Amino acid sequence: MPENIDINLLWQAYIIPWGTRIVLALVIFYIGRIVVATVVGLIIKVMQARRMDEVLVRFLSAILRWLLLLFVIIAALSQLGIDTTSMVALLGAAGLAIGLSLQGSLSNLAAGVLLITFRPFTKGDFVEAGKAMGVIESISIFTTTMTTPDNKEVIVPNSAILSNNITNYSARSTRRVDMVFGVSYGDDLRQAKQLLQEIIAADERVLAEPEPNIVVGELADSSVNFLVRPWVNSADYWGVFWDTTEAVKLKFDEAGLSIPFPQVDVNMPAKD
């Protein structure tokens, strides 16, 4: 009889209560994983429906999945009678320590999320950002990769980009080409202006609207400076700039117009 009583007490005091707790903990963990997968899947569909960047979708969904699984694990452990308060405090302290040791990386991470979310530029844009200039090749969570005009690859930390001005030369479909051409004070001003107008009008890449501006912008020390400002498609910017500069020099030479350049007169005193 005593042995039977001990076995009954063992079942009632330990086996049944702990078995129940273990089964409930497993059920909570199993159902919790299903719920987490469902919630994360729905959120991914919502983000994709809003056409969010795929890199950001993967990143946010991974963080959300691990956070929700952490709550599920804590709930399952608490069902076993484990004090999860100290565990939460320990995780918080560990997270704080990791965050302090990885401040630079976390700032790049936060900047990457903002760049991907707000999209000040996209792949293929020609930008000036983070003290670098080039075509955007890729935007990751921590860095942005550019290709410079001379075909060098530049990897810029995202925090450096977001903490400085961003100039996106590809953001607009058209751009204004700003050029300055000078003629000497002794040249015919009307003739110079007419030649500039003919050069701009002959270039099919120059847009009719907005109308090009060709005006006298400055009476400088040694020249009369014309401001020549045609509008072009963004892709034609440098072609128009270079071709117009060459055409102005050739036309001015043909017409006998001089383009002043700095000169220094040195007078040597005659020796006795």
Rank of each mutant, 00 (worst) to 15 (best):
L56M: 14
L56A: 04
V57T: 10
R58M: 06
F59M: 12
L60A: 10
S61T: 12
A62V: 13
I63L: 06
L64I: 08
R65S: 06
R65Q: 09
W66P: 00
W66K: 11
L67M: 13
L67N: 15
L70M: 14
L70I: 12
F71K: 11
F71P: 00
V72M: 04
V72D: 04
I73M: 13
I73K: 06
I73A: 11
A75Q: 09
L77R: 12
L77G: 03
S78K: 04
S78N: 06
Q79W: 11
L80A: 11
L80E: 11
G81D: 13
G81N: 07
I82R: 02
I82M: 11
D83Q: 07
T84A: 07
T85D: 09
T85V: 05
S86F: 15
M87W: 14
M87A: 15
V88D: 03
L91H: 02
G92I: 10
A93V: 13
A94P: 02
G95D: 08
G95Q: 06
A97R: 08
A97H: 07
I98R: 02
G99P: 08
G99A: 11
L100E: 10
S101H: 10
S101L: 15
L102P: 00
Q103H: 14
Q103K: 15
G104I: 08
S105I: 09
S105D: 12
L106T: 03
A111N: 01
G112H: 01
L114W: 05
L114T: 08
L115V: 05
L115G: 01
I116E: 03
T117A: 12
T117H: 09
F118T: 09
R119G: 04
P120F: 06
P120R: 01
F121Q: 01
F121K: 01
G124N: 07
G124K: 09
D125M: 07
V127S: 01
V127F: 02
E128K: 10
A129F: 15
K131N: 12
K131R: 14
G134W: 00
G134S: 03
E137I: 12
E137W: 02
E137G: 15
S138L: 05
S138G: 10
I139P: 01
I141C: 04
F142C: 01
F142M: 14
T145W: 00
T145R: 05
M146P: 00
T147H: 01
T148G: 02
P149R: 04
P149E: 03
D150P: 00
K152T: 06
K152D: 05
V154M: 04
V156I: 13
P157L: 15
P157Q: 12
P157F: 02
N158D: 05
S159R: 08
S159G: 00
A160R: 05
I161A: 00
I161V: 12
L162I: 14
L162Q: 05
N164L: 15
N164V: 03
N165Q: 11
I166A: 02
I166Y: 03
T167M: 11
T167S: 15
T167Y: 08
N168D: 05
A171P: 04
S173N: 10
T174F: 04
T174N: 07
R175A: 11
R175S: 15
R175G: 15
R175L: 12
R176E: 14
R176F: 09
V177Y: 05
V177N: 02
V177P: 00
D178A: 09
